[in-house]
Computed example of a mutant assay.
Amino acid sequence: MSGATVAVRDNARFDTAALERWLAANVPGFSGPMSVEQFAGGQSNPTFRLTTPKRAYVMRRKPPGQLLKGAHAVDREARVMRALEGAGFPVPHVHALCQDDSIIGSWFYVMDLVEGRIFWDGDFPGVAREGKAAHLDAMNATLAQLHGLDPVAIGLSDYGRPDGYLRRQIERWSRQYREDDLAGRTADLDFLVEWLPTRAPTDEAVSVVHGDFRIDNMVFHPERPEVIAVLDWELSTLGHPVVDFAYNLMMYRAPAAMRWSLVGRDLDALGYPDEAAYVAAYLRRTGRTQIADLEVHVAFNLFRLAAIIHGIKGRMLRGNAASADAAGMVAHMDTLAATARQVAEDWERGRR
């Protein structure tokens, strides 16, 4: 896995000697000395590159400080990746999980560093035009592969409740939005908190869902249009695959200022499919004929991302945001919320 690293930030420092001793005792083949850098990206669980003379690892930990209940579940990340690796899905190999706060101050896990390409921009910079669409299609195919796995067969039957996923997600993110008083309120988010429960489609399918499936959460092969590792499983659970797909589809709707967004880009010049063709490719791969109420799913995902950023705003104000770019993310919150409300209101007009 490649990505820009920086010196460990002041609000994420920990006892590196204690970590090195723990790794020597719990990770087969580990041997120091070890150097530690922090990955520049990531807004939730701080992520670190651990480099030794023989190999490099990645550590993800819960952030220090006061946390919302149920957030930053690194133990769930480790569990789902281990199950998916066993099913042949592209994820990093997890070496060890630590649930002892006394080691570095919070739970963490250590996994392989997968060498490849991570793209932050929706136009796959550095990829020739004739290969860009193939990279986008590889993302589509990988998500369809995930949704085709049987949770029971891979040992994840109890990874989440199989019923009412969308309604529970609306309740969860609405609650976290309302409970974080420090981050404040917005009229658009307040509207969506009231509107979404009245329009949520009834769930009819269950799969493992990633919860944050977009371009910058995957590692591509160094040369080929192939996803070799999907990262950041913090929001994963059992749920409706269409909700997960609609999150990925947000790249066609999200504010152009977000680097992974395709809004405002010349899709023809990039060789990309339009939104309808991207949806059709997913339908073909998953055996579906249509997605009912797709706009409601898109509106929810725009709302959820705005609510997640609302949480980032709260952590930033408390001084424990994982990324130095937290302020940049927070700047997108109002536009995301306004876009979600516009999708909702357009859908309502279309029903009349």
Rank of each mutant, 00 (worst) to 15 (best):
A153D: 04
I154E: 01
I154W: 01
S157L: 09
S157G: 15
D158A: 14
D158E: 15
P162S: 06
D163P: 00
R168C: 05
Q169D: 09
E171S: 15
R172K: 14
R172M: 08
R172T: 13
R175K: 14
R175N: 08
R175Q: 07
Q176V: 07
Q176T: 09
R178F: 00
E179D: 15
E179I: 11
D181T: 14
L182W: 00
L182N: 03
A183D: 10
A183R: 02
G184C: 12
T186G: 09
A187P: 15
D188S: 15
L189P: 01
V193R: 12
V193S: 12
V193P: 00
E194P: 02
L196A: 08
L196E: 00
P197F: 07
A200Y: 07
P201I: 05
D203P: 03
D203N: 14
V206N: 04
V206G: 06
S207H: 03
S207I: 04
V208Y: 01
V208E: 08
V209C: 10
H210E: 11
G211F: 03
D212K: 04
D212Y: 05
R214D: 07
I215C: 09
V219K: 02
H221A: 12
P222W: 10
P222L: 08
P222M: 11
E223G: 11
E223C: 03
R224Q: 15
P225G: 06
E226A: 05
V227G: 09
